[in-house]
């Protein structure tokens, strides 16, 4: 077996080309601030900080909170794109702050950070997630199997049947997709992409028997037909889920009643 080429990976410890010898650069974070205890108006506030461009936007927010302004408020937990806490609008696009590196978003210009749109802002980058989770709950996001006798062992499922809904099992409920959707911005009644993704995950699971019920929920006037296929959701998904495709598959299932 070939010995791995070791010198290539050493580059990971070196500054990226174009960032000179010191890994640190000065960047401006332009953050949308809102604190109803202080003012009814939201304002932009600029912060200058030194940061290694290989660090995350979340690292920048932490530097501000920990060393400059402790009142800056945002949600975060895992810091590597799994928990879904820190979806925000970074340079006008929905992303997870912990999965976005400074070097990937042009640090020459101020980096704008705002709360995700379409949900009520409670403080700084924190929004009210309740309407989002309500839409999720409305699609019955759990397996409904009408086995007359529950099997003693696991239900069998072929690898192909398992692959059919693999993409939509990746959802971390961060709301990046739903809050990037122009239809959702204009009408908060729309279920939004994330709820449809989670309905898809069960409709196309061979073990589930409640596809018809879920399709009826999504056939509603605030359901899938509101989707205008703008692909914002697919672009926004930090897990790489083909959200628009999933919505199209649900629409097709509603017409053909085959899934």
């Amino acid at each position: 077996m070939a010995t791995p080429v070791l010198d290539k990976a050493d580059a990971a410890g070196q500054p990226e080309p174009g960032f000179a010898d010191s890994p640190y650069i000065t960047v401006t974070f332009r953050i949308r601030r809102f604190n109803p205890e202080v003012s009814a108006e939201a304002v932009w506030e600029d912060f200058q900080l030194e940061i290694d461009p290989k660090e995350r936007v979340l690292d920048g927010l932490h530097k501000i909170k920990w060393d400059i302004d402790g009142t800056l408020t945002f949600r975060r937990s895992c810091a590597h794109g799994i928990c879904g806490s820190d979806a925000m609008r970074i340079n006008g696009k929905n992303r997870l702050a912990c999965k976005t590196l400074i070097k990937d978003i042009n640090p020459e210009k101020p980096i704008t950070v705002e709360p995700i749109k379409g949900l009520t802002v409670l403080k700084d980058l924190v929004v009210d997630m309740e309407p989002f989770f309500q839409a999720y709950r409305d699609v019955m996001p759990f397996l409904i199997a009408k086995d007359t006798n529950e099997p003693t062992r696991e239900r069998l499922q072929s690898a192909e049947d398992r692959a059919r809904f693999d993409d939509t099992t990746k959802c971390i409920l961060c709301a990046a997709c739903t809050s990037s959707c122009p239809v959702f911005w204009n009408d908060g009644q729309y279920f939004g992409p994330a709820a449809i993704v989670n309905a898809h995950r069960f409709i196309f699971d061979s073990r589930d028997d409640a596809g018809e019920q879920r399709l009826e929920v999504l056939n509603d006037r605030d359901g899938v037909w509101r989707c205008r296929t703008t692909f914002n959701c697919t672009d926004a998904c930090p897990r790489g889920i083909e959200v628009t495709k999933a919505i199209q598959e649900v629409k097709r299932a509603l017409i053909t009643r085959r899934y």
Partner: peptide, 20 residues
């Protein structure tokens, strides 16, 4: 514990026979 999770819907990877 594993079988309970499967029955709750957990999408485990499958063997060619369709088992977990």
């Amino acid at each position: 514990a594993v079988l309970d999770l499967e029955k709750m819907g957990l999408p485990f990877n499958r063997t060619p026979k369709g088992e977990i």
